[in-house]
Nucleic acid binder design. Structure first.
Lengths: 341, 341
DNA sequence: CTGAAAGCGCTTACAG
DNA sequence: CTGAAAGCGCTTACAG
């Protein structure tokens, strides 16, 4: 068993005393916020070292009115999607010297017992919002307070000029579906939608429709189901199609997880992929190329999206201007699951 | 272009004024830290609501000497390993009402320009350390200050009584290797070590050796290479074995990423898995069961490890006692890559 | 280049 | 049950 023994820490006054200067001067050498005589700097530095002094973040925040931290609101941490996204956000935050506070709870911005919000104006200087859990009205409230906000994969509520960064979902999907149509002659292409209300999915569906329309293929509503960007749900959806005897020559999984589930269902039912049914995804998650067959998909710059979102947020925090909306390019990645050799 | 317009916020004094009470009273109703007359409570609550008041975290921290936040130090965010680990840590933190601050930089605990540490005594109440980047001496320094610390996948520097949580690496690996030996008659089993100095890998190697010894199989040093828990490095290592004409009837990838690389190298060289060479991993990452062939591996309770580590840290922070070391059980997961049907 | 002082927004004894 | 006051450890005008 281990118990903790508390311990006194050096403060700015201790340093000032030891160095024989005022705390203002210590603050100045620590922050390089005003010129200080060389000799004085040396004394202060030495005192800092011998006392192992480290400034107290909360005191700084309170006195200086900034936390040096950005917050991230996530729906939940799972799936291959998150690692690259977090890496990008971390990179964006760090390169500007900001810390990252994350909240993946489903109850985010729910009040806590003590009445404070888990992630709000006071522990972060701004918020990156990637979740449907935050309602439009909560977003409005923060926005009206002038609190810096950047949305990921989600457009702002009507009338609010909040920056958002998303992928070029529609064009990417359209290119993918057209490849299926043109190169592989597919005409009955199943579409697996994402979770309800998901905007990425909304645009992908538009791209899907455009591709069909452009090639004179009528839209068949029975070819639409919900995979929810979830392997299991996608598998169930495709299994249901198969059970109902719905003819398919391809299925677009909505994302790579959905494609994975689709492949499972197909193979389980004895269909060969891609010989009997082509399958394609979206994201190009690290595992996509390792699947059997390797997955044809649309590469989304997930990491870059995270980094850009973080950078934009920090620009806003620092009083700068930010683009109101960023659409990151996507790229078709052709592998074998579509039928290409 | 979007620019930010700042905005005034209500403070505890505003609330006190509006409610016609002192700030002490407001503090008491907000924190439920002392009995307050019902009527007063109502007035204060009402004032809080009309002013949309939210306590300032930094002020609370400064006055109350706690941040309500735990920090996490990671080497880098990548691989299928991280999502479950983060999920567990988040869960552990949240259930105790703590926030999570993460740092995945390689330069962690490196001083910043302003002399403050990115993650230290002042922005967090305790630290979860899962990285080799933090040297033993840095850990000692924090420990000596009485700063709550919990180590993940790493034992404390000699003499320091710091709690750590790890997997049952040795026993799990031994069971796995014995399965290869007993069920599949393997005798020339390649071992792919993790990154240099990695403790998980160290124990897995001991388990590997024990298994061989228990079955009278001599240790062949040429059967050891470094995969670094990385797909590409593992692939290169196995490719090198093949090129050198080293005979193998199985390879243990060190972890699932390593196993993935091994399978790639083997298949690329025309060897069938598992008919020609069996392959096994460690972790049972979400994708393991989806690989071709489905991967035989050792299931590590990654998410639980994260949660336990967070809980233990919070126990320490709250002045409680914590186990000095937690060894989480692992479980053999037999699929097809070992040769089982 | 340097210091004294006010103030950031809270919590927490101390009185009553 | 309630308030006045000190103090948490800094930053930042204001003087000099």
């Amino acid at each position: 068993m281990i118990a903790q023994r508390p311990n006194k820490r050096a403060t700015i006054s201790d340093v000032a005393k030891l160095a024989g200067v005022s705390i203002s001067t210590v603050s100045r050498v620590v922050n390089e916020t005003a010129p200080v005589a060389d000799e004085t700097v040396q004394q202060v530095r030495h005192a800092i070292e011998t006392l192992d002094y480290t400034p107290h973040a909360a005191a700084r925040t309170l006195a200086g009115r900034r936390t040096g931290t950005i917050g991230l609101l996530l729906p939940e941490i799972s799936g291959a999607f998150y690692a690259p996204m977090l890496r990008g956000i971390e990179a964006g935050a760090l390169e500007a010297g900001f810390d990252l506070l994350i909240h993946a709870s489903s109850a985010v911005l729910q009040e806590r017992g003590n009445g404070s919000l888990p992630l709000a104006e006071h522990n972060v200087d701004g918020l990156l919002v990637f979740t449907d859990r935050l309602t439009d009205s909560e977003i409005s409230r923060l926005y009206r307070r002038g609190f810096p906000l950047v949305l990921l994969h989600r457009t702002p509520p009507a009338g609010l000029d909040i920056p958002c960064v998303t992928f070029e979902n529609k064009a990417g999907t359209r290119r993918l579906i057209e490849h299926l149509i043109i190169a592989h002659g597919c005409r009955r292409i199943g579409f697996l939608a994402g979770p309800d209300g998901n905007e990425d999915s909304y645009w992908r569906e538009l791209g899907y429709r455009e591709a069909l329309a452009a090639h004179g293929i009528p839209l068949d509503p029975s070819l639409r189901s919900v995979g929810a960007f979830d392997e299991e749900q996608a598998e169930a959806a495709v299994a249901a199609w198969l059970r109902q005897g719905i003819e398919l020559d391809a299925v677009f999984g909505g994302d790579d997880e959905g494609a994975t589930g689709a492949i499972q269902a197909l193979q389980r039912a004895g269909r060969r992929v891609p010989q009997d049914v082509a399958v394609a995804g979206f994201d190009d998650v690290p595992f996509a190329r390792l699947m059997t067959p390797p997955l044809t998909t649309v590469r989304a710059p997930i990491e870059m999206a995270g980094q850009q979102a973080a950078s934009q947020l920090i620009t806003l925090i620092q009083g700068g201007e930010s683009d109101s909306s960023t659409l990151l390019p996507t790229e078709l990645v052709i592998r074998r699951s579509c039928g290409c050799a």
